[in-house]
Amino acid sequence: MSTNGYTNWAVDLAEVGPIYPFQGYEVLMVIVGVVFWIGWHRIQFVREGEHLEKARHTGDAEKVKAQLERY
């Protein structure tokens, strides 16, 4: 299977040009990568916010207040 359109490699590669896979899809790959990256950060932001909110409500508020007043 060839993803770059060449079936015969018995040529002068200096005259061929790009030989990497999926040539022509560079812009699409960058867009997909950036969308994935931003989506990943959004998911992490929401999950960590839920975790921190849950952690904020654990424990006894009076004990926390007493410990903070000590210092």
Rank of each mutant, 00 (worst) to 15 (best):
1 M>K: 04
1 M>S: 12
1 M>T: 10
2 S>L: 09
2 S>D: 11
3 T>D: 11
3 T>F: 10
4 N>W: 11
4 N>S: 15
5 G>E: 02
6 Y>M: 03
6 Y>C: 01
7 T>W: 11
7 T>N: 07
8 N>Q: 10
9 W>N: 14
9 W>G: 09
10 A>V: 10
10 A>H: 02
11 V>N: 02
12 D>K: 02
13 L>E: 07
13 L>N: 07
14 A>Q: 14
15 E>Q: 04
16 V>I: 11
18 P>H: 08
20 Y>C: 05
20 Y>K: 12
20 Y>V: 05
20 Y>R: 07
20 Y>P: 00
20 Y>G: 07
21 P>I: 00
21 P>E: 08
22 F>W: 12
22 F>Q: 05
23 Q>W: 02
23 Q>T: 09
24 G>F: 01
24 G>H: 08
24 G>N: 10
24 G>P: 00
24 G>E: 00
25 Y>L: 04
25 Y>C: 07
25 Y>Q: 11
25 Y>I: 04
26 E>T: 12
26 E>G: 06
26 E>C: 00
27 V>H: 05
29 M>E: 14
29 M>K: 12
29 M>A: 14
29 M>D: 14
30 V>E: 07
31 I>W: 01
33 G>F: 04
33 G>M: 01
34 V>E: 05
34 V>N: 02
35 V>Q: 03
35 V>N: 01
36 F>C: 12
37 W>Q: 09
37 W>P: 00
38 I>L: 13
38 I>A: 11
38 I>N: 02
38 I>M: 09
38 I>C: 09
39 G>C: 04
39 G>T: 00
39 G>S: 09
39 G>V: 07
39 G>E: 01
39 G>A: 03
39 G>Y: 03
39 G>M: 03
41 H>C: 11
41 H>Y: 15
42 R>D: 11
42 R>N: 05
42 R>I: 12
43 I>C: 11
44 Q>M: 09
46 V>H: 15
46 V>N: 13
48 E>P: 01
48 E>M: 12
49 G>C: 04
49 G>Y: 01
50 E>N: 09
50 E>Y: 10
51 H>L: 04
52 L>V: 08
52 L>A: 10
53 E>S: 12
53 E>M: 07
55 A>E: 08
55 A>Q: 10
55 A>H: 03
56 R>F: 15
56 R>S: 15
56 R>I: 13
57 H>Q: 12
57 H>G: 06
57 H>M: 12
57 H>N: 14
58 T>G: 03
58 T>N: 10
58 T>V: 07
58 T>A: 08
60 D>W: 03
60 D>Y: 06
60 D>M: 05
60 D>N: 15
61 A>I: 13
61 A>P: 03
61 A>Q: 13
62 E>G: 08
64 V>F: 11
64 V>N: 06
65 K>Y: 15
66 A>N: 02
67 Q>K: 13
67 Q>H: 15
67 Q>S: 13
68 L>F: 13
69 E>A: 06
69 E>K: 09
69 E>L: 09
69 E>Q: 08
69 E>Y: 06
70 R>Y: 00
71 Y>M: 04
71 Y>N: 03
